[in-house]
Design a protein around this nucleic acid. Structure first.
Lengths: 204, 204
DNA sequence: ATACCTACCTAACGTTCGTTAGTAACCCGA
DNA sequence: TCGGGTTACTAACGAACGTTAGGTAGGTAT
């Protein structure tokens, strides 16, 4: 029991550090943040952080690794909950936007601090990011095959959709005009308008 | 004449420094790049950089300031060259995408290194960026008023369009599958599909 | 020939960086 | 009450940071 409690508290301390690091890295960037500044925000000494993490780099990787986990599991659950390419794309886009609003800071870091990862850690993260992007590409492809989408270039369209939604993390504000749900709804509409096959023969 | 030559060479040296800084900051980030590393790439000593720029911060600001200049003038010229809300939005989007492919690195920095600016410099840059965004908002508004666009939220749509196109700077590659022109064409089509008013009453 | 300016250099400044070693306070089971 | 593990601390390491002072080689103007 003692070890379980200890483990819990240890995990909780690590969690506190990660949360503080997310907030700090988001504002000042990884290289612009020092271990001493991070520690100060936690009312600790910098050296104490090394009890929980082996290095500064390990902290960054832990943040990005977990964020990629959440993205992959989240989009998997969202897509599995409905049927058909259109409903699934709606669900995937909706999840992606909501995640980038709710988990704004870590989502932002997962894109902006890739360059601060060591080579090995970058490879690990990019592999999972590719996997995530593949979900969207395959949804588009299914829709095109089923005749409900009309897309001239699946790869490009997937990138366009993802970067558009990812951008939410850069400008979203809790105290802003629009709630995450509203933003997600409108993004879903915009995106579906641009990929849906038009019944009449107007496009391009 | 001597002074003119001197001035030219001085400006050329400053230009070389800016170009090297753009490449370096892009890869390592502002705080991840040192004056010594920057100098090494130029076969200089770090101290010599201070003959051309007052500080590291001044180099970053010079990059972002000029990029904002290019964006504002470029979109102004693009929009002025054609008539009507739809043609103008096409032109603006086209310019924005092409700029973020051709001037990829500095365009990337103008978004990713805002947080590395001092407060005063940030204010200057943000003022101009707001001005740039306003161009797109007013194009959308004109189109809605003219009845050619159908947009539920102009502000949100403008942000969506801009972040989508800005994203090009993060993934574009010279040696990639698609030329900037092709990317611009497809982006223009996607965006216009999602803002154009549908003749029939299907949307939402 | 002299004086000056330009564009760089070497050397060093004080500070901060990530990280390690060694230690002290605390809590728990025995 | 004792001993061991947990979690933090203080102190310090060498390296790297942005920046400044002062000097020097070479071209130009007088």
């Amino acid at each position: 029991m003692a070890t379980i409690v200890a483990t819990h508290e240890r995990a909780a301390a690590a969690e506190r550090i990660l949360r503080a690091a997310i907030a700090l890295f988001r504002v000042r960037g990884y290289h612009g943040s020092s271990m001493r500044t991070l520690a100060r925000g936690l009312r600790m000494e910098a050296a104490s952080l090394y009890y929980h993490f082996g290095s500064k780099q390990e902290i960054l990787f832990a943040i990005l690794d977990r964020t990629l986990d959440d993205l992959l599991h989240g989009v998997g659950r969202a897509v599995a909950a409905v049927e058909g390419p259109e409903a699934r794309l709606r669900a995937a886009v909706r999840f992606h936007v909501l995640f980038h609003a709710h988990s704004q800071h870590e989502a932002f870091l997962s894109h902006s601090e890739l360059r601060s990862l060591t080579q090995g850690n970058l490879r690990l993260v990019l592999t999972r990011r590719d996997e995530y992007e593949r979900v969207f590409r395959s949804l588009l492809t299914s829709g095109v095959r089923a005749g409900v989408f009309q897309v001239s270039d699946v790869r490009l369209t997937a990138m366009a959709i993802l970067t558009m939604c990812t951008g939410v993390a850069t400008w979203f504000s809790d105290r802003g005009r629009l709630a995450p749900e509203s933003i997600a709804d409108r993004y879903v509409e915009m995106i579906l308008r641009s990929v849906k096959r038009c019944p009449k023969g107007s496009p391009s």
